[in-house]
Design a protein around this nucleic acid. Structure first.
Lengths: 217, 217, 217, 217
DNA sequence: GATGAATGAGCTTTCATTCAT
DNA sequence: TATGAATGAAAGCTCATTCAT
């Protein structure tokens, strides 16, 4: 590393600056769109409104994405991909299945509390996508489902309980997703505490619910 | 046929017959609208499409309701009122709190399996209502929430556990609603059995989850 | 026929009157659209402009046809079907092949002088149609081509000239259509006389051109 | 390589090289634009599409011409000017009027077969130009018309036929242009042979058609 | 009761064109 | 010489709603 190498980093070329600004604008756009769509739904949100909120022209929006559906797709794809990656890392960290379930629940809720709009859209607007868009996001969703479902199945089919538990675990997984996803409608940091606390309570309910001992903590 | 049958109730006058036919048509309309709105969402459903599906004219629809929003309101109001009434009766039947929770869960799921479209709309489209419409349905929803919440609170604040349980019960109630409402997205009679069975599993999870003994059965 | 039968004709019901008025409006619409499209081309003509010219709202236009392309299709289909039928009748009337060619040329030009806009659109805007619309009109066009082509072939393959004439007749037919269709760009009743006269001159050129004696007249 | 080659013409300066490269690019652009416009029409062709086909940026296109209309004008002007010049030279070559007509027809069709897109645009898109653009191209077109019209008039007003022939010659000229211009819609080298052959057939039809003896050949 | 006809408002999308760099 | 970013204008189309009958 010579002193010279500082230059490109310290004084980025115009090209580079422009690229970054554009990227920033695209991100801002996705975020604003997500906020509006989370509030009013995809159908009821007009691209005009997104533009208005950003002081950008309607036509200008189309410089950044090529259709309204593609915008929705971008939101869902990025969010889901990011969630999936984060949760996969969390699941891979060492620990018992119970530990991992607990971390996943908290991880999900943490992600949700920092990106509530995007998560709401992922949860409720998959059906607004069609064709390839739909299939691609559906695939991510399925992988995320499997992550949780495998863990639940593992917990429920421990040594002593093989028999009917496995047939049951699909529904327990879906109960868990129900608890997680419904949180959009009521969660309030003030009333309900942190994602960590909420996730802990959910974990306890489930672990007890399926007849296992909760963690010592 | 006895003479009694000559009485007006038995041979209704034209007026009465017409009123009934109108009522029947209105019901059909609500049901069809519910089916379409459940499938595509309120915003994305055009009154035209409802008419088309019933072989009725577009303008004709406006004889039965005065705006699209009113149509949505009718669906939600009737469904919620009917659900609430049914569940209140169920809750009033004798039995322990545990019994009653179990019956409510099963009652809810049974109602849902026989009116999935209407229930889906109640669950997801409250925010599409405004003003008085919104407030009226919200009030029903709150009453329904209380019905369940009170029972959960009662179960969680039994003799030995007063302390922290009560602070907790709000969230348990909402977990329960999450499990119930999310069922829209996955329940299949073929895969998951009857509402009774599903409700039973949910009940077991919750009762165990909050540290109570399940029912003897 | 009794006197009673006069009534329905003399005092048509409201239903009937409305139907006729609607039909009249639809025809007017097609005619106005044809005028604009003939002047500026299909692409460059806005439905808005058609509406404006008729003092009808933009949305109102869509009560009468379901897309801009369908409007273009209607114009072309009706015009071509009408021309084809008229010319088929003309071709079937008794006479020598020469007589019939003469009548067809005059018939074509007569039709053109009374529906110049529609004919121009048929001539230049087939490629603006797609899918079924395109295929249907193309089929009419082909039938019309055959009507003329068969006659030309017949004239050119008389007793003494079978040999190379038939190979040639395709192009002569297309030369004829060129003369007919190009007339859009220059024909003026004042300068060039009636369709009858113009058709006569064209006939003479062609008949002489292919080495036959003109008609005695 | 002689010393002479050192002269500026032989080793062009940077300026000169750049000018040529620009010229080459502009030509490529005109050609590509002509191809697209011939296929889809002027209105329906987007400058974007031209750029895309050349891997050039949209904004970059505007370095070479200042508006879409100017692009269309360039195509028409260059093509017409070039055709006119070529045909004037052909007309000036020695020979009888018949010879000259024959050469002109073949010349026209030859030019058309080597620049079908440009010719199609000249034929069908004059009306898409306005103001000065329109007038300038119209003037070229008129000069071209006169070239042909004068010749036809000369042929038709030979010694024995002065009388009605001259009144007639306008229409014969326009019949000829009809045959020539309509060829866009059907000419196929495979089916119809060379421009020379096609022009010959057209010549024969016309010469016979107006009652003259064809050339001996 | 029911409907044919009509419309205002609004939506998504496209496009020619500009401008700073 | 060339382009990324941006926009005003306008297009096709849809939809909830009305109204005379």
């Amino acid at each position: 590393m010579t002193v010279l190498s500082l230059r490109p980093q310290a004084i980025p070329g115009r090209r580079e600056r422009v690229r970054k600004a554009t990227q920033r604008k695209a991100d801002e756009l996705l975020q604003t769109a997500a906020a509006l769509m989370a509030e009013k739904g995809f159908e009821a949100t007009a691209i005009r409104d997104v533009g208005r909120k950003l002081d950008a022209s309607l036509a200008g929006m189309y410089y950044y994405f090529k259709s309204k559906e593609e915008l929705l797709y971008q939101i869902q794809y990025r969010t889901f991909a990011s969630l999936l990656q984060a949760q996969q890392q969390i699941a891979e960290r060492p620990g018992t299945p119970k530990d991992r379930l607990r971390r996943l629940l908290i991880g999900h809720l943490t992600f949700f509390t920092s990106h509530p709009n995007e998560m709401k859209i992922c949860t409720y607007e998959l059906e607004s996508l069609t064709g390839e868009y739909y299939n691609t996001v559906l695939e991510l969703r399925r992988r995320y489902y499997r992550l949780m479902a495998d863990l639940v199945a593992q917990l429920m089919t421990g040594p002593a309980r093989k028999a009917r538990a496995s047939a049951h675990s699909r529904r327990v997984t879906l109960f868990v997703f129900g608890m997680l996803n419904w949180a959009f409608t009521w969660y309030s940091q003030a009333k309900d505490g942190t994602a960590e606390k909420l996730g802990g309570e959910m974990f306890d309910l489930v672990i007890n619910g399926i007849g296992l001992e909760p963690l010592n903590r």
